[in-house]
Write a protein that binds this DNA or RNA. Sequence first.
DNA 1: TGCTCCCGCCAACGC
DNA 2: GCGTTGGCGGGAGCA
Length: 434
Amino acid sequence: MNCLKLKDLVAPRMRKYEFGTETVQTENRAAQKENLFVEPKKTLPKTPVKNDSTPSTVPWRGCGTPDQDLVTPVKTNDKSSPEPWSPTANLKMLISAASPDIRDREKRKELFRQIENDKLVSVADAIQLDSITEAATDELEQQRPSRKQKSLGLLCQKFLARYPNHPVSSEKTEISLDEVATDLGVERRRIYDIVNVLESLQLVSRMAKNQYSWHGMLGLEQTLSTLKRRGEQHGYARQLALAHHKELDSEEMEKGASAQERWSCNQELNKESQPVEVENKSALLNSRKDKSLRIMTEKFVMLFLVSEPKTVALDIAAKVLIEESQQDSADNSKFKTKIRRLYDIANVLTSLGLIKKVHVTEEKGRKPAFKWVGPVHQNQADDHSVTLSEQTGSVEGVFPVTVNTKERLGCPHSFSTQHRSHSSQSKAQSAPCS
DNA sequence: TGCTCCCGCCAACGC
DNA sequence: GCGTTGGCGGGAGCA
């Protein structure tokens, strides 16, 4: 399995903006090319360049030593070789080269500038069309940004683009929620959503009312390590297994599995998970804080960190995160609410490049899930059995740990489930997630 | 049609 | 009392 390291996560920023399309990257590259501190009109070299074959994508051109500059320059193949840079352009380049973070920030800003420009252009185009064919009311409709353009994920991207991933430790970056909300043109309520998630990962911390401090990714690995340990202590792997097992059981019921089998297996599982439940009940006081996005984010991340493979189906996560007392199936609204919040969290985590959306295929059908693509810590406590999907790097087979848990429990019902897991796994492998 | 998740109401919180 | 914070769910966009 290809595990991503933190440096993979943060260094090549392009990955963060993939969004499943090559287009964005391409546009971004184009934007970067256009951002080489050279005005397009001035790009023609004094001496015409003859070789057109090489694309003009050498970004740090002009960084040559003074010696190189002294000799008559050999005409390169670079068609876009610019005029000598202006002092400002040189300064920009030097700053950019000196600090990858600054460079990245500029890139990201440029990306969003590009996105915004694209939006404006598309909106402008739309308006033009409308002026010919549609009434004024429709024009207004067209001007309204689409749902995607207003998504929390994109907003989070814009938010992150404002700050360096790895700020200099001595440099304290303050975040004013009002300022950010105004700059990004959104209500403060939305910024709270983002900040709460970031705070749970300690990318930011609250300083005062309306004021946060930006830490960036500096302590992310440490935070994840802590969360993983906490997740293990809370027995989240077992809870995941239990939640998954319950779901399988409901399927089994439909298929006519014997009640005795289900009862005995549930007895075993409930016995096994009891300490966790008791712990949860004491910990979860149903207070406002316990349901906060911050806590939920921590728990959600813990689920990823303790599960193998690191793919968590949304509904399973919701079931685990809903307090045991509220887990009766009749309380569907609680479940729906939890799912909504998980989508919110997932959008921010996706923007951070920690998870990505996938789908898992089970007998019930395809269902949404998220796969951890952030840094992974291996420690001694990681004794979850290695699964087929883990070995092959497959995303599918959401909770093979279920099988192992049952085997450890000596559950009499384990055979059918195990069989199912394998079958669903193989099915999944033949029809991989999107 | 179901999934996804924006939006804003309104209650808890804290000064 | 008032501003801040954020839980919550209706309902609309989207595939």
